[in-house]
């Protein structure tokens, strides 16, 4: 017991923070653990998407014409709009982290909600795009229709398109869910300048999801647009 007290004093605050879990010695150690854990998690995500990017690369080299042709059927303006929306949401997310760091409870909540709204806008646009693909029979499988000589290989493009954007959208849905919880925690006043790890970690995740899209947009929408 006396040992624990001595320890707490050595770190400058006699009463441990509410959010300090029992198996950590200090808030700093706890935060460093979370941050490292999040980065390692994002590393696994890079490899997860990496498998798809690898398949994309291979087939794009093999069947460039098919990829170019299939890519031209995607709506570039909707894609560009969504790219802007996601970049904007990364900005609001960064502002949310900043507000949490500086003890601004209502600003934190406001920026988090803005991020959620932007995320939902992105998903809504994605629904419109998917619906359009279903209408035009661009979904690979038995109902796929294409007049092109590359019809078979176009299916590979669309298989990758749906798998990649679908998994990306799934990540966004998870992100929106997590952010809703974090928003609730922020509204309850759980965060202060000593403890805002959940906001920061959610931010890291959200920026990662954003970054994946930054790659997906040119790779899927902009294969070859100049003719």
């Amino acid at each position: 017991m006396s040992n624990a007290v001595a320890h707490a004093e050595a770190h400058g605050h006699a009463v441990p923070h509410d959010a300090l879990q029992h198996h950590f010695e200090t808030m700093q150690q706890q935060k460093e653990a979370s941050t490292l854990g999040m980065w390692v998690f994002l590393l696994t995500e890079v490899l997860f998407f990496g498998g798809l990017f690898f398949a994309y690369l291979l087939y794009r080299v093999w069947y460039f014409d098919a990829f170019a042709e299939a890519s031209r059927t995607l709506d570039i303006s909707l894609g560009a709009f969504n790219t802007a929306v996601l970049i904007g949401s990364s900005l609001t997310m960064a502002l949310a982290v900043r507000s949490a760091q500086t003890n601004q409870r209502s600003a934190t909540v406001r920026w988090l909600i803005s991020t959620i709204v932007l995320g939902c806008v992105f998903l809504g646009v994605k629904v419109i795009e998917y619906a359009d693909k279903f209408e035009h029979h661009h979904v690979p499988g038995p109902n796929f229709v294409s007049e092109s000589v590359w019809a078979a290989q176009e299916q590979i493009f669309f298989s990758l398109y749906f798998t990649m954007t679908g998994l990306h959208a799934l990540h966004m849905i998870v992100g929106v869910g997590v952010m809703s919880v974090v928003t609730w925690m922020a509204a309850k006043g759980r965060f202060d300048e000593h403890y805002y790890t959940p906001v920061e970690m959610t931010g890291l995740y959200w920026h990662f999801v954003d970054l994946v899209w930054i790659y997906l947009f040119p790779l899927l929408y902009l294969v070859e647009r100049h003719n």
Partner: peptide
């Protein structure tokens, strides 16, 4: 570093089998 790659590979087999997508399907290249 390794497990996520087999995870995504299983997903690719899954979408082929469940939805008729074609990523590894030789009949579609």
């Amino acid at each position: 570093l390794g497990t996520p790659v087999v995870a995504i590979t299983i997903i690719m087999v899954f979408v082929e089998r469940a939805f008729g997508f074609g990523i590894f399907d030789p009949t579609r290249g």
